[in-house]
């Protein structure tokens, strides 16, 4: 239980990252690759948030009186991840539009069959 208490978030974050990397490494379908990319993205975000966590901390919002600043979690990673999520969706939309374009041109989403981007 102590192990879970300490490491469960790390396991989740790195599990996502490695599964995403595995998708990127082995799959050939463009949209599958993009899904893998978004999973890696989520995993990294989770990891960054884990870094700023404080045991038994509260969210960094002074919504009522009597909140102790000492016990608040670190707000900096949260702000960064907020940025990261929005940029992630922008990149994803861009990548998908390219995939659609490639599909219209080659009639396939399979990386192996799109020969012209190879040497």
């Amino acid at each position: 239980m102590d192990f879970l208490n300490n490491y469960i978030f790390y396991i989740g974050a790195f599990g996502l990252i490695f599964i995403g990397l595995y998708i990127l490494l082995t799959r050939k379908n463009l949209i599958k690759l993009i899904i893998g990319l978004s999973i890696v993205d989520t995993g990294v975000n989770l990891l960054i948030i884990c870094m700023g966590y404080l045991k038994n901390g509260t969210a960094p919002i002074f919504s009522r009186k009597g909140l102790n600043p000492e016990t608040m979690v670190d707000p900096t990673p949260q702000a960064l991840v907020l940025t990261s999520i929005v940029i992630g969706v922008a990149v994803l939309a861009m990548a998908l539009s390219l995939a659609i374009r490639l599909y219209q041109h080659y009639g396939t989403l399979d990386m192996r069959k799109i020969k012209e981007q190879k040497w």
């Binding site: 300490n6 490491y7 978030f9 790390y10 884990c50 870094m51 700023g52 966590y53 404080l54 045991k55 901390g57 960094p60 600043p69 608040m72 979690v73 670190d74 707000p75 900096t76």
Partner: peptide, 17 residues
């Protein structure tokens, strides 16, 4: 080597305070 749930960074503390 990185403990989970340790106190935050100096810049985070500055922002909070």
């Amino acid at each position: 080597e990185i403990p989970f749930g340790k106190p935050g960074t100096a810049v985070g503390n500055y922002y909070i305070e």
